[in-house]
Design a binder for these strands. Structure first.
Lengths: 167, 167
DNA sequence: ACAATACGTCAGTGTTGTTGACATTCCAAG
DNA sequence: CTTGGAATGTCAACAACACTGACGTATTGT
């Protein structure tokens, strides 16, 4: 059950009180809204949703990735991803090439128009994150990243680490 | 446009490179999935969605709040909130009382059953946040909170601060 | 030949969002 | 006091998006 007695266990445990935890939860809720607000605005102007942003982002990040790869990274169903990819391909933002070794696979790439959209989305989102980073300072950013990574599932952690080593 | 030259501006600006910003964006994406995964599991068992969680959370947080207040906090449309509230009221988790001063307003309260659901949701979500906090340590948590607050809109910031002062 | 994999698609369901209309209540100007 | 506007909340119809589960096709590998 709830435990409010952390407050009496010394100042080094103050950050684990229910009060602090709830504040963190609410901060996460509001901050994520801010985090997605700008890209969402851009997307809705073009008739796209948040799922399109994610697809475009990770195709940009890992050109030539397959549909199955994206499914694992995004954590959506095949049908949702397919609908998104279908519209992106029809609109000429994403190109789907049949694999050379394994012809069952489709490798996904951004077209020039796709790169343009990605840049536009990345622009507005990065601007906000940069501003937040600048306001909070380097040590805060390091802490921010540590908590976020500790909040992931092992599954996502695996995805995240795999993306990191691609640098 | 993109700016990769931050890397040459000294070590104190290393955290503002595009690489670091992109990593932060992806970490935020994956972490938020982890953040909502456990409550989502509980909710779907009961036929509810994430919107129900938010409503229950903030009614618990601010008992007697009005529908309009919740609209501002949650950032959803009136109809979406109303549908959610309708099901919660019909299921006996939320009680809606006509205002005494202003009879147009409906003041919202959790019933005992509502408090039970809130506790169950809070339990699983808090467990993960607590674990992340513990793993990252107090200084990291402070940085985490600073960056999150800096990432909010002024609008949300206002909501967040108003909730904070209720303590 | 046979099973497994990668991809696409269909039907049915549920949540969420938008548009727009509507009833009730409050308040203030006439 | 009356009346009109503004605020609060409710509701219906429709669209967007996601999920489940099943099925079909092409390809790979044993």
């Amino acid at each position: 059950m709830r435990d409010n007695r952390n407050e009496m266990r010394g100042p080094n445990l103050l950050f684990l009180t229910d009060e602090q935890l709830r504040k963190g939860i609410e901060a996460m809720f509001f901050a994520y809204r801010g985090f997605t607000a700008d890209p969402d605005r851009v997307l809705s102007e073009k008739g796209y949703g948040r799922a399109h942003h994610r697809a475009v982002h990770f195709i940009h990040r890992s050109p030539g990735t397959t549909v199955n790869n994206l499914l694992g990274i995004l954590g959506v169903t095949k049908q949702s991803l397919n609908r998104v990819l279908r519209s992106l391909i029809d609109d000429g933002l994403v190109e789907s090439k049949v694999g050379t070794q394994d012809k069952r696979e489709r490798h996904l790439y951004l077209t020039p128009a796709g790169h343009a959209l990605e840049a536009e989305l990345s622009e507005v989102q990065t601007a906000r994150v940069r501003s937040a980073y600048r306001a909070a300072g380097p040590e805060a950013v390091q802490g921010f990243r540590m908590v976020l990574e500790a909040m992931m599932d092992t599954e996502m952690r695996r995805c995240f680490d795999k993306l990191k080593e691609t640098e």
